[in-house]
Structures are given as structure tokens and as C-alpha cells.
């Protein structure tokens, strides 16, 4: 399986926060959800990948090219969407097209116009007059209109209502129909990622906790529920994280089938990405 984005041992130190030894791979043709709580390091990682922030150490490759040596070549082939619109208030879509035409070699005016029409974005209004959802769709339209092979979105759906978010997810799924294309989508809205991600990479406190296929996560992890006495019977190595309630314990376990055999009679429920993350983070605190 070809890798379109390779991050190796990326590190960056700030005063109050540091990113340590971040590594993961995005296989070509897939969507990877990059998830973590606010402040975990998602945006920092993406900025490091894009060389917007100077790294301390590590290596990043896209399309097999080095992100610093072949920076311009890479950036012709990627589309980036940040969480806020970065267009000046007084610009209109045709102004944006005028600018982009002279930045990207592969800028496609017809494609841009098509996206504007599909997304129902008014051509005669300025960015200032656009709603938040419209601004985001405009950013996406811009990112898609130079035929990129890799899309990087940083919290692009945060702050949008469910209807717009759904529309955007559909746009992303359409984009990925061509298996030469890939998407890295960072978000703290796990339900969105559950809908479209093939892989999930979880970052917490500047470190990667896991990076695996979403299916495996959903099928393998489970929440085991038991009483206070029974909790003591569970071996420490089986506990990924736990939550103590007034009437019992909830334990996140890996390899559900094994656990079902090992701890007969215990309730083991299906889980979702949000819970897996919560337990990883909370489990640490306890």
C-alpha cells in the first residue's frame, strides 16, 4: 500500500507545550481522521507538516518528496483548509479566482465555478457577507480547484451546524472516489470521523497514542461493565482505561472476543471513537 503522507519522529518544543516523536502514515486513497482534544497538538502537527512552523527534529514526506526540499512542488498538489476563512473581507469569489490563477499551476477556473454553483455560493457577495458555513465551503472549493491529490483539513467542520457538516462530509466522500486521492482530516468531532474515516490517529498531550484502522478500533475495543468487587479481579494489563461510578466500574478493554472468554459473565458493550479517546485520557488521570 502506497503511503501518500509519512510523518517520522516529528518534534517541536514551545514554552508551555511540546510535540514529541510524532509518527504516522497515511495510505494513498484513504481518509485519516486526526483526532484529539483541543490543545492536544493537531494544528501544530499539521503546521509542522506544512513547514509553517520550524520543526526541532523529524522528517515529513508527501508523495515521496521531502516537505522542505520539495516544498513548492508538494504544495502544488495539496489542498489545505483551515478552520477559519483566510480570505480578506472585501474579496468576492472572482477576486479569489484571479489570485489563485496566478498561484497554482493547475488552477481550474471552470472547476471552481462549478463548485461555487454546486455549493450554492453567491458570486456577487463579499467574504464578509458570507455565513460561516459558506466561508468554509468557499475555502474547500478553493482547495479543490487546482486538482490536488491530498487534502489536509484542520478542524474544518468545527463550529458548523450538522446540516452543513454533513454536506461537507459528502463533498469529501465524493473527492475520495478517485483512489489516487487522500484526505487527512483533523477534528475533535468524533461522530464526523466515525462516518467517513478509514483510519484514526489519536494525539494526546503532544504524543501519538494510536494510529489504526477505524474498523479495528470499533470491533476490537469494548467497554466492560462490572461491580466494584469484580473490578479487582481484572488484571491491570487488560485495562486500557477505566471510569469509576457510584454503582460500578466501566473499563475500556482491547480484543473484545478474548475478554469475553476471559471474563465470562461480564457485560461488554460496543464502543465508539469518542469513548475510546475519553477512556485513554481519563484512564491516565486515575
Amino acid at each position: 500500500m502506497e503511503t501518500v503522507l509519512e510523518v517520522n519522529h516529528l518534534s517541536k518544543q514551545f514554552d508551555t507545550f511540546s510535540l514529541e516523536d510524532v509518527s504516522f502514515q497515511l495510505p494513498k486513497g484513504s481518509i485519516m481522521g486526526f483526532v484529539g482534544e483541543n490543545g492536544a497538538g493537531k494544528t501544530t502537527t499539521i503546521k509542522l507538516i506544512l513547514n509553517l512552523i520550524n520543526k526541532n527534529s523529524g522528517q515529513v514526506k508527501m508523495f515521496g518528496l521531502d516537505h522542505m526540499k520539495d516544498e513548492k512542488q508538494i504544495k502544488e498538489q495539496i489542498g489545505v483548509v483551515f478552520d477559519n476563512s483566510h480570505f480578506h473581507d472585501h474579496l468576492r469569489p472572482d477576486d479569489i479566482a484571479k489570485i489563485m490563477r496566478n498561484i497554482f499551476q493547475n488552477w481550474d477556473d471552470a472547476l471552481f465555478t462549478n463548485y461555487l454553483k454546486t455549493f450554492k455560493l453567491p458570486l456577487n457577495k463579499t467574504v464578509k457577507e458570507y455565513s460561516k458555513g459558506m466561508k468554509m465551503k468557499l475555502s474547500i472549493a478553493t482547495a479543490l480547484s487546482h486538482h490536488p491529490k491530498l487534502l489536509l483539513l484542520d478542524e474544518a467542520t468545527s463550529g458548523l451546524d450538522p446540516i452543513v457538516r454533513n454536506e461537507i462530509l459528502d463533498i469529501l466522500l465524493d473527492f475520495i472516489q478517485d483512489e489516487e486521492r487522500s484526505i487527512l482530516l483533523s477534528s475533535h468531532i468524533t461522530s464526523d470521523l466515525e462516518k467517513i474515516a478509514d483510519y484514526i490517529t489519536f494525539i494526546h498531550d503532544g504524543k501519538i497514542v494510536f494510529s489504526e484502522s477505524k474498523d479495528e478500533l470499533i470491533y476490537e475495543y469494548g467497554i466492560m461493565k462490572c461491580g466494584i468487587e469484580d473490578f479487582k479481579k481484572i488484571s491491570k494489563s487488560d485495562i486500557v482505561g477505566y471510569r469509576k461510578g457510584q454503582f460500578g466500574y466501566e473499563v475500556l478493554v482491547r480484543d473484545k472476543k478474548e475478554m469475553e472468554k476471559k471474563y465470562r459473565g461480564f457485560v461488554i458493550d460496543h464502543t465508539n471513537i469518542e469513548e475510546i479517546i475519553l477512556f485513554h485520557v481519563r484512564g491516565e488521570e486515575q
Binding site: K47, N51, E71, Q73, H88, D89, F104
Partner: peptide, 18 residues
């Protein structure tokens, strides 16, 4: 000023602009 307001630089540098 306009660039600062729009946070243009961060976005611009994600494109093939050095």
C-alpha cells in the same frame, strides 16, 4: 494590516508560495 486581519500568511504559505 489587511493580511493580519485575515490571517492570510498562514494560509498563503500552505500554497506554493515561498
Amino acid at each position: 494590516s489587511y493580511d493580519d486581519l485575515a490571517k492570510w500568511d498562514t494560509f498563503a504559505l500552505s500554497m506554493p508560495v515561498t
